[in-house]
């Protein structure tokens, strides 16, 4: 490819349309099917899935244990799978405690539990986040206005092509009277990444 990558948005949009038409001509893609697949994907892959897992884990210690020890199997118990991305991946779930905190990243590219959290935010894919969170997580979290005490141990989990990670945040205080649905509503995407408290 020549150095035309600095072209405008309109220019790249035209290139993408050209390639899509070429692939349609070769019988490799069907634009209607592409639209349907995207709609279905976006409807299914969003942070509500991760939030449901967390709420169930907060309420059910046995499920919490299964989620930490064999997440890929545990998530099928509430009708979820890791197949919302491009292919099925292993999932490892890690839980925050009053003294330990977890954060996820993909230093090499952008691996992320898409099926459970939806498409990742641009900052997650940025060189700034990927380079810095493994060297100085505390400062990076402070940029998210998340200030952990110096005594808290932080573990950063670097995802790869086969394994994705998700964080179980600490259950907020004074939520004993909430049911599973109400608890799930407290869980945020950034909480599941580990860059925000709940």
């Amino acid at each position: 490819m020549s150095g035309d990558h600095t072209g405008t948005d309109a220019a790249i949009a035209a290139q993408v349309r050209h390639v899509e038409a070429l692939l349609e001509e070769r019988g490799l893609v069907d634009p209607k099917e592409l639209d349907r697949a995207m709609e279905a994907f976006l409807a299914k892959a969003n942070p509500d899935n991760g939030a449901r897992l967390v709420a169930r884990a907060w309420l059910d210690p046995a499920f919490h244990h299964r989620l930490l020890t064999d997440a890929s199997t545990a998530l099928t118990e509430i009708g979820l799978s890791m197949g919302g991305g491009l292919q099925e991946q292993r999932l490892k779930v890690v839980a925050n405690t009053p003294t330990t905190h977890n954060v996820i990243v993909c230093t090499l590219c952008s691996c992320y539990p898409v099926a459970l959290l939806g498409p990742s935010p641009t900052w997650y894919k940025s060189e700034a986040y990927r380079s810095r969170v493994v060297r100085d997580p505390r400062s990076v979290l402070a940029e998210f206005d998340f200030h952990l005490p110096p005594t808290t141990t932080i573990t950063v989990w670097d995802a790869n092509a086969e394994t994705r990670f998700m964080v179980i945040p600490q259950r907020p205080k004074n939520t004993d009277n909430l049911d599973e649905h109400a608890l799930a509503n407290l869980v945020t995407r950034n909480g599941l990444i580990g860059v925000a408290p709940l």
Binding site: V105, T107, L108, C109, P121, T122, W123, S126, E127, A128, Y129, R130, S131, R132, V134, R135, V140, E143, F144, D158
Partner: peptide, 16 residues
């Protein structure tokens, strides 16, 4: 070039 883990010199994180 993609292997940036731990690399120095990148700026603060920009969020949208």
């Amino acid at each position: 070039i993609n292997d940036v883990g731990g690399m120095h010199g990148f700026p603060p994180i920009e969020r949208e």
